[in-house]
């Protein structure tokens, strides 16, 4: 049942809502975004050679590595999958609460769904937490000093520019507004362990988050978001990202959108897989870089 990382890469959609949304965000980032779904092309790009025998060797090594549990590549993918499921569920809950608020009979149900901003903030913190955990799974703790490690993180963030831009636009700016990062800490402060448990991905991630108990996990996530928000603030101002800009970029690929910014964020959360899509591509690249060096 478990597929190798490269098989997952080749099964990624070539053209669907997810790809169009990412293409839209790609227009905001210098260098743009390319939807890499061919393992052979990725290997040829890393090796700088299209010799079929070399590509075959790299591929065989990469499949061996992604099957080995201790190497962490497969574990990183399961983190991304868990978060992706949670994103769908949160999007669904928010659609339900929006629809429910408008229909008298369903008003009681709307009260059952949690306040959507808090839920969104918790969802974002889980994604950032998953990103940190996946980084250590895929890359280990590279270098001998803290300086090496943070340089490595910065380098990773540079590579994953579109991925981070998508995270910031879809999960922070669209649903929470342009002041999202400033609001984030306050919203997380209000979140309770119950809000955390409501997210299905939490159950799957809980074992991999350091600390024992929901309270400890929540404070780990808050600290993760705090350190991430510093970097994200610089990223937002260097690219001049705003919710409006994101909406316009998305309209360029998805077509006109009549609803509000929040509605677009909810819609994309419920119906696209941007996070796991770019996640598979990022892990596949690191895996191929390693396999190429080991053959």
């Amino acid at each position: 049942m478990s597929r190798t990382v490269l098989e997952r890469l080749e099964r990624l959609p070539k053209r669907d809502l997810t790809v169009l949304a990412l293409k839209g965000i790609g227009t905001l980032v210098p260098g743009g975004w390319h939807n890499i779904t061919s393992a052979d092309a990725l290997i040829a790009d890393v090796m700088g050679s299209s010799d079929p025998e070399l590509i075959r060797q790299v591929r065989a090594r990469a499949d061996l590595l992604s099957g080995a549990r201790h190497e962490g590549y497969g574990r990183a993918l399961s983190l991304y999958d868990a978060v992706n499921r949670s994103q769908h569920a949160t999007g669904g809950l928010r659609i339900l609460s929006n629809v429910g608020a408008g229909i008298p009979l369903l008003k009681r149900m709307a009260k059952l769904t949690p306040a959507s901003e808090t839920l969104q903030a918790v969802d974002l913190s889980l994604k950032v937490g998953a990103e940190l955990l996946a980084f250590t799974q895929v890359n280990g703790l590279p270098g001998d000093s803290f300086g090496d490690f943070s340089a490595s993180l910065a380098d990773y963030a540079g590579e994953a520019r579109v991925r981070m831009a998508a995270l910031i636009c879809f999960d922070a700016l669209l649903p929470l507004g342009d002041q999202a990062l400033q609001k984030l800490d306050g919203l997380l402060g209000k979140a309770s362990a119950g809000d955390l448990r409501r997210l299905p991905s939490y159950g799957q991630m809980a074992g991999m988050i350091p600390g024992r108990g929901d309270g400890a996990h929540l404070s780990f996530l808050r600290r993760g978001v705090e350190s991430w928000a510093g970097w994200a603030g610089g990223f937002i101002s260097s690219l001049g990202l705003t919710g409006q800009k994101a909406v316009r970029a998305l309209e360029g690929t998805l077509g006109p959108w009549a609803g509000g910014m929040q509605g677009l964020g909810t819609f994309l959360d419920a119906f696209t897989d941007t996070y796991s899509h770019t996640g598979v591509q990022a892990v596949a690249r690191r895996l191929v870089e390693r396999a190429a060096a080991e053959i």
């Binding site: 890393v46 201790h70 190497e71 962490g72 895929v138 890359n139 280990g140 703790l141 590279p142 270098g143 090496d148 340089a151 490595s152 380098d155 990773y156 540079g158 690191r286 870089e289 390693r290 190429a292 060096a293 080991e294």
Partner: peptide, 29 residues
């Protein structure tokens, strides 16, 4: 600039960069 990118058992890899462009992958396995 030399940026370490992966470190696992039996493997260490770094990227040699000039500005923001990657020049080479260096690895010991």
């Amino acid at each position: 600039e030399l940026v370490f990118t992966q470190e696992k058992r039996g493997f260490s890899e770094a990227r040699l960069k000039q500005g923001s462009a990657a020049l080479a992958l260096l690895a010991i396995s």
